[in-house]
């Protein structure tokens, strides 16, 4: 009697942990919002891609500031590692959701960072698809 209960408890816990790591409801809502925008911007949009997000993250890009040709310029090529502001040296918490679970859960915070860092890195705003790809990549890390 004890062991099935224990098993059930373990299973519930494990599921809970897995869900927390992959599908925070706030993050899902943010992604859904970007998906709706992406679809509106281009009818052929199907789904976000972690691979495209990875390419965006790693760059290099040419339109932005010379010192920051990629997200990885500050966040390092390994998103589970601590980043470092290229100019001030300030530590930046890892981008990977597995290490920093609160990433991409506050829509205002997410938009603020995209609004700043896309021009810094790309020299232009990011599209909704790029934002979704980026989050999808880092939620998988």
């Amino acid at each position: 009697m004890k062991s099935p209960l224990l098993l059930a408890a373990v299973a519930t816990l494990a599921t809970g942990v897995a869900l927390a790591a992959t599908a925070d409801p706030n993050r899902t809502k943010i992604l859904d919002g970007y998906a709706a925008q992406a679809k509106a911007q281009s009818p052929e949009f199907a789904a976000f891609s972690a691979d495209r997000g990875r390419a965006l993250y790693l760059g290099p890009h040419s339109g932005g500031k010379a010192e920051t040709p990629a997200c990885a310029a500050c966040h390092t090529e390994n998103p589970t590692a601590q980043g470092r502001h290229y100019k001030t040296g300030r530590a930046i918490e890892p981008m990977a959701v597995s290490v920093t679970p609160k990433r991409f859960t506050d829509p205002a915070e997410v938009e603020k960072r995209f609004e700043r860092d896309c021009p810094n890195v790309l020299g232009r705003a990011c599209t909704a698809r790029e934002k979704g790809d980026f989050i999808t990549f880092l939620a998988s890390r």
């Binding site: 500031k65 100019k87 205002a108 603020k112 609004e115 700043r116 860092d117 021009p119 810094n120």
Partner: peptide, 9 residues
């Protein structure tokens, strides 16, 4: 902001 975009709401 010293060369970086640091806009706030």
């Amino acid at each position: 902001h010293f060369g970086d975009k640091a806009s706030l709401p």
